[in-house]
Simulated scan of single mutants.
Amino acid sequence: MPPEAASLAPAPAAAGLPAAWRAPLAALALAALALVAVTAGAWGAMVHQWWNIDTYNHLLLVPFIVAWLVALKERELASLAPQPFAPALLAVAAALGLWVWGARLGIDLVAQAGAVLALQAAVVTVLGLRVSLVLAVPLAFASFLVPFGDEIIAPLQYLTADIAIALTRWSGVAARIEGIHIHTPAGLFIVAEACSGVKFLIAMVQLGVLVCAVRFSRWRVRIAFMAACIIVPILANGVRAFATIWVAQVIGADRATGFDHIVYGWIFFAIIVALLLGAAWRFATREPDTHGWSLAAIAGWRWVARAEAFRIAPIGAVLAIIALAAIAALGLLL
């Protein structure tokens, strides 16, 4: 290659972390450490649920998904210099207040939501408004770290029982229902908490949000897909319960129950997911790395430039967050 041609080639990107990011990321690490230390009880309870309760095992994937979503924006982030955003300290304070309130009342969901929100607000504070807008999707997706779903188990049990009894009677099997108890010639079937379908439902909602964010650009498609991610698992769980009852009439209740757990746990769920994704994939109009707002779009928002005037130094941001964390810890003790 001639020397002049070589001089026209783009220079390789410098390896390592851009200098403009080093101080803000160090500040963010210190702020996150302080927040997690203060809200350790809430984080410990969340980790326990992720690891030990099968309804929430899929939440172990959330940190990896968030990291992947951030990595997709690496090129755009490299062109930015974080500018700590002072007004977001109000969000940190509000989130810590929510944590204190939930911890005082013994409401784990509220305390855990406050702990996660405090960490999200710290990212906005330390890395700044423009960076946070670029990272809006992973920041929002991190909300799924909070285990939720127990609150809807009872309604799902009754809904599953209603669907199962309707299909059972339609199939010609004589049956009657009392709440979540279904009486059939083969025996009594109870739609227990484990059979409510809550695990399937919340996993599908999480998957639906991810797919909508990284693959769909039209809101009509997003709304339709999210509706399917809610309705289809509920209906499918009712069909599964009916299938268990119907099979029991032929092979016996004990054998049908074992069959149900194997099929539903390993095959049925996978089939439903594959069908939903297969039906929706032709509507995918964007590449994953284009998720969220682009730098060009953000640059066109005048309010962003005006808001960025409220700056704070990285050390000032981290000291303010540590002070707020200390105040929240003191407020919980008093």
Rank of each mutant, 00 (worst) to 15 (best):
Q112G: 01
F85R: 10
P82C: 06
K73D: 04
S79P: 00
A93R: 01
P82R: 07
L77I: 11
L72D: 07
L98D: 00
L119P: 04
A115P: 00
Y56N: 11
G128W: 06
A113H: 01
V134R: 14
V62S: 07
Q112S: 02
A111K: 03
A95V: 10
A122C: 04
A121H: 04
L59E: 05
H58E: 03
A121V: 05
V123L: 10
L105N: 12
H58M: 06
Y56G: 05
W68Y: 14
P82N: 07
W99T: 12
L60I: 12
A86T: 05
W50N: 07
N57Q: 12
Q120T: 12
E74L: 13
L127M: 12
W68E: 09
L105K: 14
A118E: 02
V70D: 05
S79I: 05
L60D: 00
P87S: 09
A111V: 08
L72W: 13
L80S: 08
A86I: 02
L109V: 15
L105T: 13
V137G: 06
L119R: 06
A121Y: 04
L109Q: 14
L80C: 10
T55E: 13
V92C: 13
R130A: 08
V116R: 09
A81W: 06
A113D: 00
V66F: 11
F85W: 15
L77E: 11
A111Q: 03
S79L: 14
A121S: 15
L90D: 00
A103H: 04
L127Y: 03
Q83M: 12
F64Y: 10
L119E: 06
L105M: 13
L69T: 14
Q120L: 12
G102F: 05
A93M: 04
W51V: 15
V62A: 09
R75Y: 00
T125L: 01
A122M: 05
L109H: 12
A86Y: 06
V110I: 15
A113I: 10
P63Y: 11
L119C: 15
L105F: 08
A115E: 01
G102P: 03
P63N: 12
G106D: 13
L109D: 12
G102H: 06
V62F: 09
V70M: 10
P82T: 10
V126K: 10
A94Q: 03
R75H: 07
A118V: 05
I107L: 15
D54V: 11
L59R: 08
G102C: 07
L98W: 04
N57L: 11
V110S: 00
L89Y: 09
H58P: 01
V124S: 01
V131R: 06
A111L: 03
A94R: 04
Q112T: 02
L133F: 10
A113Y: 02
A113E: 01
L105H: 13
F85G: 08
L96V: 05
D54H: 14
P63F: 13
L96A: 04
A122D: 02
V126A: 04
L72A: 15
A118F: 03
L117T: 08
V123K: 00
G97Q: 08
L98H: 01
A113V: 12
L90V: 15
V131M: 08
A81I: 09
L127V: 06
E74C: 04
N52E: 09
A95S: 15
A88T: 12
P138T: 09
A86E: 08
V124W: 12
L77Y: 11
V110T: 14
T125E: 01
K73Q: 14
